[in-house]
């Protein structure tokens, strides 16, 4: 790895790791995941399934919050506070800066998700559940989704303010989980051009629902390995495309 990328990635991770907001969100993620025990008391049916279902949902929610809140500030803050002058005046290209920022945030997310996952596994074991490989796979798929969200927020952060970046990223996140409606919707469109447009959006926007395997994991239904493999490749391709776009935008930026 190029020294510039490594240095920036480590520093980005350090920045997140020294942010109180990061710990607060990780803490609440764990707290809500553990509070799934309460929900399992209040609902009928298999308590372990309810515990897993609500616990994983809590971890998912807080991890997405961390990804969005950290991602939208990443580049913007560097530009706003002019710390970027210090980095780009060193032998570091703008491409390396963006890649370093992304890897740093990827490491941050791995740490946050890792901490929540370890505690959740211990919690499930304490409640009589065994080690579930499906849950590990769920965390892996969630991590892929987080990488896509991080790349999206990084893209917006490179050219707009944190508020707008937040709105755009959250909007894409929500849209990304109902992408199937686009496929349905296009069948109701009479004008062919609109149909093509909707189809194009379907392929262009991030299909985050692909990474959600919670129902299969909780209910114990079989997972299609090809579908998982496709999702991994999809995440990699999507992240690379977003990073390339971010780099193109960032190369043209003027720092006044």
């Amino acid at each position: 790895m190029k020294p510039g990328i490594k240095g920036i990635a480590v520093n980005t991770f350090r920045e997140s790791a020294r942010n109180k907001m990061f710990y607060l969100l990780v803490f609440f993620g764990i707290l809500f995941a553990l509070s799934s025990k309460l929900v399992s008391f209040l609902t009928l049916g298999d308590a372990m399934k309810v515990l897993k279902d609500t616990g994983l949902a809590a971890i998912n929610f807080f991890c997405v919050l961390i990804a969005v809140f950290t991602g939208i500030n990443l580049v913007y803050k560097e530009i706003e506070r002019k710390t970027v002058f210090n980095i780009l005046s060193k032998p570091v290209s703008r491409d390396e800066f963006i890649v370093g920022k992304f890897l740093g945030l990827a490491l941050t997310m791995l740490t946050a998700l890792g901490a929540m996952a370890v505690i959740f596994f211990a919690f499930v074991a304490l409640n009589g559940g065994g080690f579930d490989l499906g849950i590990l796979l769920y965390f892996f798929m969630l991590y892929l989704e987080l990488l896509v969200i991080v790349a999206v927020s990084l893209l917006f952060s490179s050219f707009t303010t944190p508020i707008l970046a937040f709105i755009f990223t959250v909007s894409l996140y929500l849209i990304g989980h109902v992408m199937w409606t686009y496929n349905e919707f296009k069948n109701y469109l009479a004008i062919p051009l609109w149909r093509i447009f909707t189809q194009a959006l379907y392929y262009l926007l991030p299909n985050l629902a692909k990474f959600n395997i919670k129902n299969e994991v909780v209910l114990g239904t079989a997972l299609d390995p090809w579908s998982i493999l496709f999702s991994v490749l999809y995440a990699l391709a999507y992240v690379l495309a977003l990073l390339a776009l971010t780099v193109l935008i960032f190369r043209r930026r003027e720092f006044q």
């Binding site: 350090r14 920045e15 710390t83 210090n86 005046s89």
Partner: peptide, 15 residues
């Protein structure tokens, strides 16, 4: 081979 000091520098305050 260049060293640069920007005007009114601001560095990472968490370091």
């Amino acid at each position: 081979r260049i060293g640069f000091l920007p005007e009114n520098p601001y560095f990472y305050d968490y370091l």
